[in-house]
Amino acid sequence: MNSKDIIDLDRSNLSFAVEVSTEPGGENIFRCFACGTCTAGCPIARTDSRFQPSAIIRMVILGLREQVLWHDAIWLCAGCYTCQERCPQGVNIADLMMALRNIATREGYAPEPYHVQLNLLLEKGCLYEIDDFDNKKRVKADLPEIHIDARELRILQEKLLEELD
């Protein structure tokens, strides 16, 4: 193994796992006993060598805050819940990945498509805008027209942001 691949524990931040455990979804992280069941059944770990859920959990517990939050890996989980169903320790791994992504977002590391989606929801109330053209196609297919209003969503988001301050 190349020495640059070895984890440098001098850079560890041991309060990171505590921080994760207080984030919705991260509550059970300390229960992990590193059995590897989650990685063994993970469809993404099978397809892409950048991602192993058990390795990410280990890195969180070792306090490697930057490496976890900056790296692409946490954004590769497909949220399929296979691991979550099988974890003998009830770690709720898919929810944990979600918790890490939310922390990373607050630090400014969310990939662009996620910002785009949030803006779309606040503006339109849905991901794919339904315009007159779409409604025409719907009516032709004997389906009701749809008109979505995102005003209430914007108010909710505004109040949530006020709470954070």
């Binding site: 992504r101 939310n102 989606q117 949030l118 929801l121 849905c126 209430e152 909710l156």
Partner: peptide, 20 residues
């Protein structure tokens, strides 16, 4: 009045996604 369920932003705006 139905909108998106919130699922697409669970990763980056968790609390808001639940409110949706």
């Amino acid at each position: 009045g139905f909108t998106c369920c919130g699922f697409p932003v669970k990763s980056n705006a968790y609390t808001f996604s639940q409110m949706m």
